[in-house]
Design a protein around this nucleic acid. Structure first.
Length: 884
RNA sequence: GGGCGCGUAGCUCAGCGGUAGAGCACUCGCUUCACACGCGAGGGGUCGCAGGUUCAAACCCUGCCGCGCCCA
């Protein structure tokens, strides 16, 4: 044992040391010590947006990753947490555009031009981007910052280009004209996943279209009257008798005066609306499908809108330039004027909104680049089905399968400037050449061709799908790649399975020789407010994790999130919990301070010191039991179990019992040999607590580690508990459990009878066997201190308190103090409890079904329990009888 | 409409086949020489409802009721 280094201050104040330790760890490269011979352990961070700022979801996600990394680092693995940020195409472009608009020049990207704008974005990235990486440091995240990556850095660009070209050459990536989700505010295609459906109170308008043959009208119903201008057909259900007479005829589309066919398609629901549906192939996903199913009908596909969702030149002149909303009003009014508006029915329905712009998304017909996701999904499904990649909790596999099995072509082009520009060039005739460089494209096209590069960039997820291998140097065959691919686990929110997990698995398998990017996917839940509501800026119920860090310390926040993380369930975060775990940190701080003031300091061995005394042997065994529980918790990703086990051990075992039981052993006049042993064991046990708690509370534990003595290494790069060096010690365990039981019984009885807490009572004992007698004498000092009883010098007469523990009955004379009636009532209650359980067990044992069919262990346990309860009831009965 | 999940102490949640647990909150007592962000002792649950399987069910099965999420 080495002597204390610095005195531990009386008050625990995390702000005093958290940032100091972080800076130290980073400076000495503690996050990734050189361990060339160790087995690698790799986590690839889900890269936060470069525009992002830390919210509680990040705090949870990164706390869990940090626990895994710190734990495996303590186990001696070559732990590496690959870190970096995502360029976040739309988000970043929006941030910079907003700044431009608000700046003194009040300019736009269009006014600046592409090159100048991109320079501005890079400037922004250099000065303001990545604030979140500083916030992750506040949280204690032990990432490998020395190899921080960005999805737009040079190597990554190379990877993205290579993947694009390769997929194109393999015919898994192609250009196509299809409907996309068009965001008319941002003027770009967006992914299905970036579309948010909202229930909206709208209307169902019923209109009449006159029949070509003058035989009357066909009525249709629509929620989007403005799209009537682009109708190409009317469809009815083939089995609908009331519509049969229309089929095959044509009707005249009012306002545009165009003849359109009436066709049948089973997609039409006969009893919804009027039973007839207008088909606008260019502005509705379902209608587009109908159009494709009916080539014979020659349905025209008319793109009614410009890219800002104003009405285009394809509309009659009086509608051109109107917004969607204005056009809708005018169409309704014009139909009404013609007497063709039948009725307006209130109708609640789902409307698509862009989750970033907040405007209504328009299904829009454009040329875009698509990845054949269905093809890439096949092996990605297989790898989960075979177990090569496992989801924890397993239930998310179904969600993954469901999405993968119904996957649509993935639109990967975006009409943005910030991102990876698509490596495709067009000649004057519009012919497309895809190549890794412009020179290569030129070579394909011939030197005479004048090439123009595709203006669009790739979906951010296209590049982040490559994160697990492009961060490690791919397409170069680096040592890093060989060593750290695949990662051990991906930790992420379940809401991101589609965005991330699915796409990383697809690309990882395709480009890394069928090896999936990680062995395990741990999906956690969402962090909600104390009432269970989703946190959102608009609701104003967001909690800034850094505010909690300032108030309670990063360790307390981390512990809270860990304790509440049980396998993917959502977390309702109540600040009271953070406060509670701050109290736990304070408790441990004070325990360490107590140890220090008693000459207990840093241990010198990883193995436990030699111990003779039962309480010391007991705590060594308890450390091992706890460490094993923690190992199991980590192996099964039970973060809540990890937190519970270390909390319970540190507080309820070590502080409440061990430190209290050993106080007499350290007191003045105690046996110096025993005292020395106790100091050694205390120091060792406290060190093990620091080691075991370190993954969750890294700052506090590192601080105490150094306060307790001079160390040859920092705790972060120390060593996990050597459970293999600790044999089971059932004798010590039995001794101390007996002692704890006795003290608890006495305390309980004293309180019930209102014995003054300070009063020290004499006791006499009956029925004690040799073991109990030995235990009573070996632990006399502890019993006196904790139960406040000492062996009686005289025999009790009159009123007494009696209690039964193990094989003995203890009597505490309480002449004049005890209320005889109260003591009788207490004993009667105890007898009732014991008898009730005795009888219940007897009943079970009497049932032939139980003794014949139950597992032998269960029967044996019932017999033992029955005997114990029976004896207890008997002794309590005798005690009651003695009271008279 | 399809799928997933949840209903256990006042609150938040563990437990998922052998006598109901934790933290917080609550009650009572305590200036016990580490800690009142503390110490000690307590009260509190027909484990959503109804059936079934089993010697035994909070735990497995079926149905119902209530709540949430995802997809269409």
């Amino acid at each position: 044992m080495t002597l204390p280094d610095t005195l531990i201050e009386k008050t625990f104040s995390p702000a005093d040391f958290e940032q100091r330790w972080y800076a130290h760890w980073e400076a000495v490269n503690a996050f990734r010590p050189e361990r060339p011979d160790a087995k690698p352990y790799t986590i690839i961070i889900p890269p936060p947006n470069v525009t992002g700022s830390l919210h509680l979801g990040h705090a949870l996600d990164n706390t869990l990753q940090d626990i895994l990394i710190r734990y495996h680092r303590l186990l001696g693995r070559d732990a590496r947490w690959v870190v970096g940020t995502d360029h976040a195409g739309i988000a970043t472009q929006m941030v910079v555009e907003r700044q431009l608009a608000e700046s003194t020049q009040a300019t736009t990207r269009q006014a600046m031009g592409r090159t100048a704008f991109l320079e501005t974005v890079w400037d922004w990235k250099r000065t303001s981007g990545g604030a979140i990486t500083q916030q992750l440091r506040r949280l204690g995240a032990s990432c490998d910052w020395s190899n921080e990556r960005f999805t737009m850095d040079e190597g990554f660009n190379k990877a993205v280009t290579k993947v694009f070209v390769t997929l194109f050459e393999q015919k898994l990536l192609y250009r196509d004209k299809r409907l996309v989700n068009w965001d008319p505010k941002l003027k770009t295609a967006i992914s299905d996943l970036e579309v948010e459906f909202r229930e909206v109170d709208g209307n169902l308008w019923h209109f009449r279209y006159p029949m070509e043959d003058g035989s009357g009208f066909i009525a249709i119903a629509t929620t989007r009257p403005e799209t009537i201008l682009g109708d190409g057909a009317v469809a009815v259900n083939p089995d609908d008798p009331k519509m049969a007479h229309f089929v095959g005829k044509r009707c005249r589309l009012p306002l545009v005066d165009r003849l359109i066919p009436i066709i049948t398609d089973s997609y039409v629901e006969a009893d919804f609306g009027t039973g007839a549906v207008k088909i606008t192939a260019a502005h509705d996903f379902n209608d587009f499908e109908v159009y494709k199913r009916h080539p014979e009908a020659n349905i025209p596909v008319i793109n009614l809108m410009n890219d800002d969702a104003t009405m285009s030149d394809a509309c009659p002149p009086e509608y051109r330039g109107l917004t969607r909303e204005e056009a809708r009003k005018k169409v309704i009014a014009d139909f009404d004027a013609l007497g063709l508006l039948d009725k307006v029915e209130p109708h609640r329905h789902q409307v698509p909104y862009g989750d970033r712009s907040g405007v209504i998304i328009e299904p829009y017909l454009t040329d875009q680049w698509y990845v054949n996701a269905a093809e890439l999904a096949k092996p990605a499904l297989e790898v989960v089905k075979s177990g090569a990649t496992q989801f924890v909790p397993k239930t998310w596999e179904k969600t993954y399968y469901n999405w993968m099995e119904n996957i649509q072509p993935w639109c990967v082009s975006r009409q943005l400037w910030w991102g990876h520009q698509i490596p495709a060039w067009y000649d004057e005739g519009g012919k497309c050449y895809v190549a890794e460089t412009e020179e290569a494209a030129q070579a394909q096209a011939g030197s005479a061709a004048v090439l123009t590069r595709d203006e669009d960039v790739l979906d951010t997820w296209f590049s982040s799908a490559l994160w697990p291998f492009a961060t490690l140097g791919w397409p170069e065959k680096t040592d890093e790649l060989a060593r750290h691919y695949p990662g051990d686990v991906l930790v992420t929110g379940f809401d991101i399975i589609f965005f991330w997990v699915a796409r990383m698995v697809m690309q990882g398998l395709h480009f890394m020789d069928d090896v999936p990017p990680f062995k395990t996917v741990y999906c956690h839940g969402l962090v909600r407010d104390a009432k269970g509501a989703k946190m959102s800026k608009s609701k104003g119920n967001t909690v800034d994790p850094l505010t909690l860090v300032d108030k309670y310390g990063a360790d307390a926040l981390r512990f809270t999130l860990t304790a509440m993380e049980s396998q993917g369930r959502d977390i309702k975060l109540d600040e009271k919990r953070v406060e509670g775990y701050r109290n736990f940190a304070t408790k441990l701080w004070n325990a360490a301070r107590f140890c220090q003031s008693n000459g207990i300091g840093a241990s010198t061995t990883v193995e436990p010191p030699k111990a003779e005394n039962a309480v010391n042997r007991w705590i060594i065994g308890e450390v091992a039991t706890t460490a094993r529980a923690l190992e199991t918790a980590m192996a099964t990703y039970r973060f809540d179990a990890y937190a519970d086990a270390i909390y319970g051990f540190a507080w309820n075992r070590f502080c409440d019992w061990y430190l209290e039981l050993t106080k007499p052993l350290l007191a003045e006049g105690a046996d110096p040999v025993v005292a020395a042993e106790t100091r050694a064991v205390s120091g060792w046990a406290l060190d093990q607590i620091l080691v075991m708690l370190h993954p969750v509370m890294p700052f506090l534990t590192e601080e105490l580690w150094h306060k307790l003595g001079a160390r040859s290494r920092d705790l972060i790069v120390s060593e996990w508990v050597r459970t293999d060096a600790i044999p089971a010690d059932p004798a010590a365990s039995a001794d101390i459990e007996w002692l704890i039981g006795l003290v608890s019984e006495v305390r309980s009885a004293r309180t019930e009878l209102n014995v003054p807490p300070g009063a020290k009572l004499g006791y006499s004992v009956e029925g004690a066997g040799a073991a109990t007698t030995a235990r009573l004498s070996a632990n006399a000092a502890a019993i006196e201190r904790l139960a406040r009883i000492v062996p009686a010098t005289t025999t009790a007469t009159g009123g007494k308190l009696q209690l039964v523990h193990a094989d003995a009955t203890y009597a505490l004379p309480l002449e004049g103090v005890v209320d005889l009636a109260a003591e009788k009532a207490r004993l009667e209650k105890a007898i009732a409890t014991a008898s009730k359980e005795r009888d219940a067990l007897a009943g079970r044992l009497a049932s032939p079904g139980f003794t014949e069919k139950a597992k032998p262990e269960a029967v044996e346990k019932a017999r033992d329990d029955h005997a114990a309860r029976s004896a207890e009831a008997e002794r309590l009965g005798a005690a009651l009888a003695r009271l008279g």
